[in-house]
Amino acid sequence: MKNYLVSVMTAVCAAASPAAADTVFDSGKLLATGGVSQIEGAGGAGLSTWSVITGYGSRNGVGANAHYSYLDLPDFTFETVGFAAGLFDRVELSYARQYFDTGETGVVLGLGEGFEFGQDVFGAKVRLFGDAVYDQDRWYPQVAAGIQYKDAEQEAVLAAVGADDDSGVDYYLSATKLYLRHSLLLSGTVRATQANQFGLLGFDEDYSAQFDGSAVMLLSRRWAVGADYRTKPDNLAFADEEDAAAAYLVFFPNKGVSLTLAGVDLGEVANQGGQAGVYFSLQVGF
């Protein structure tokens, strides 16, 4: 599966080359204004969903990208591969596959060495109103509504740890605004979710309202520095679940590539404390 997705990334790379202004693949947005790929595959930053539509397609164009992210934690590794398309700066469709490898910790948890949790995340987002970039004379942000359908693996283990279900749907409302006068971007999202640890540990039968947000300072046309914060529910009795935070540096050498380097703190995960580590993400597209 991983190899298959990497070849999809390569294909997206190749497709990006002939992108020109006189086709529907217009790469018409300004550099960096599509954000990067967040952990569930939507347009945003590392942990946070933004209301911007991913990719560089303008309101007359289509953009698409693929990404690979790797988070190295003390007791686990977390990888995500996915792709997404932005249609006419209105609709975003995304898919991400997450792998949460317990490595040697799998033995401690009684699951066996290298036991892997995983899930598919299918996302859709629609921009409702506002323009995060051009509406510099208006107070209101760009607002979008989205859903993420999550289908987790390891049903038996999820049931054993107390999850009610192995799939669930997140609903979110995002507001993002670029304060160009201050070279600052702010974004906030309210999310209704049933997910335990993003869904990797299954889903509760009840929804709770959670928040994620970003503050990003633009350093130049190609560099940005920022931070995310994301609250999470704490549904499972066997282990505490904590909020997540990240601080990152993003490099946009051109519209075809972005690189994110971050420090990410997920707090306690499956009774393993202090799960903070280095995160790397590569996005290619147009």
Binding site: A21, G28, L30, R59
Partner: peptide, 10 residues
């Protein structure tokens, strides 16, 4: 279109 506008911005 937006791509034209952004070309001038660049």
């Amino acid at each position: 279109d937006t791509a034209d506008f952004n070309a001038l911005v660049e």
